[in-house]
Write a protein that binds this DNA or RNA. Structure first.
Lengths: 244, 244
DNA sequence: ATGATGGACTGATCGAGAGCAGTCTCCTGG
DNA sequence: CCAGGAGACTGCTCTCGATCAGTCCATCAT
């Protein structure tokens, strides 16, 4: 039990609603089937059907879609405490692939277990739906970013969002965070070329806003970064550690 | 009852699963509070909280997000049979605005009614969740399009998706459909300038693929359009009238 | 008739970011 | 110890689409 109380998902959900013993126990039950996956090999393939969902407990994953023309678009990154493939459990579509960016630990969640937990603990259900809805809002924000922000603002926004998400599970803060992504990941997520990502990163670094180096993001000037990104964290719906 | 059996939402859900009398009755009950809204005036404002969801029965709506810099990004269009603001009912966030594009008719759905319907008719719940998940998949596909498709492919894809969605509720087919959008709407949805939308439309028209004129889309060469768009309707999860 | 307004449409210019081609450095495996 | 590969990084050129600055044509109100 002690373990679960400090699990990333528990931390995240607790930021939304205080969980009782009963709910923590239900959450614990969801964490039973531990799984490991190695970096680089897809967990779920585009078009595959009827597989489980996962709760990510350690490591980073990206969900992406491949185009017929060979390019790929990363839809979102999952960090510890995030659900993975939640949609494809309730329904039948797995419209994108999941690739572990580093070696990861995850708990497999079966449809029945999830529905049981929902039926028994409505508050937990609400909390999980809150998390799912937050994920959806992030995709929307991502869409807005690609459609209507230029490359620097997009990058700045991305860094701030990541920082905010990570701080919710105690893995980062206003000063920065660990980040195992390559510049190719950033390119595929932001709809840019890897070359341009590199230039934007240099630009942000040289103007003293943020440094991305050796798998570590260091935020030098949080305020100016927020300014450049026009970052309004409202969509994350978290009063969040960052703001206190 | 007869009315509801032919409502757009019923048609749409029936494409996913056959609905029994009981479920049709539950669906009927959701349609009780009829509302009308005039074109152009926002139904829901960004940042507003705790309002109802709607089932759109006639007319078109767009959901969009405004940027601090004045630009806007249209996230999705709603056509008859679509839900509107479903997320903000279950939770607390209304992260974007809804604007009727023409005068519309919609049924207001209260949270309690929805939860009641869910509890009483699990099959209906599944069907509605299917629809919600399809909407989410469309947003993802939209994201991919803006990030990784060029302007013509994006436009072609958009036309095909709309056609496909409309055909599901009997409002269009392989040959075309009515479409009350302006070129500005297209621009804001596709992440382009209105000027460029105009040029792309001309280009598509002149190469004999599709014509968008006088609020009507005419598809001249469906196959070549699919080809240009690299359109794979799998994400819509509908075996769909178009394919039969 | 006379504006006013909104939408479609066009030409000219400019710039953000892509694409190509290549270097440098670190890491890993034979 | 060397080869090979991944990832970071750079300079150059070129293109896609933005921006500016309009016109033309309806509809609607005065």
């Amino acid at each position: 039990m002690k373990i679960i109380e400090n699990s990333p998902l528990t931390r995240k959900l607790s930021a939304f609603v205080a969980l009782s013993e009963v709910e923590l126990a239900a959450l614990e039950r969801l964490h039973q089937r531990r799984r490991s996956f190695v970096a680089g090999r897809d967990m779920v393939h585009q078009g595959q059907s009827a597989q489980a969902a996962y709760i990510l407990s350690a490591g980073w994953v990206c969900s992406y879609k491949l185009q017929p023309n060979g390019t790929r678009q990363i839809v979102d990154f999952q960090v510890p405490g995030d659900f993975l493939g939640l949609r494809s459990v309730l329904l039948r579509t797995s419209d994108h692939s999941f690739e572990p960016i580093v070696d990861i630990e995850a708990a497999e969640v079966l449809t029945v277990d999830l529905l049981d937990a929902f039926a028994q603990t409505p508050r937990l259900a609400t909390a999980i739906l809150w998390a799912a809805s937050r994920d959806e809002a992030m995709v929307v924000e991502h869409l807005v970013g690609i459609g209507r922000r230029d490359a620097d603002a997009r990058m700045a926004h991305f860094m701030l969002e990541l920082g905010s998400r990570l701080s919710l599970v105690g893995m980062g803060g206003k000063e920065g965070f660990e980040c195992p992504l390559t510049q190719y990941h950033l390119a595929d997520a932001l709809g840019l070329s890897a070359v341009h990502v590199n230039r934007i990163l240099r630009q942000l670094r040289e103007s003293g806003l943020v440094t991305f180096r050796d798998s570590h993001v260091t935020i030098h000037d949080h305020d100016r970064l927020v300014d450049l990104a026009e970052f309004d964290p409202a969509y994350l719906d978290q009063i969040g550690p960052l703001l206190k």
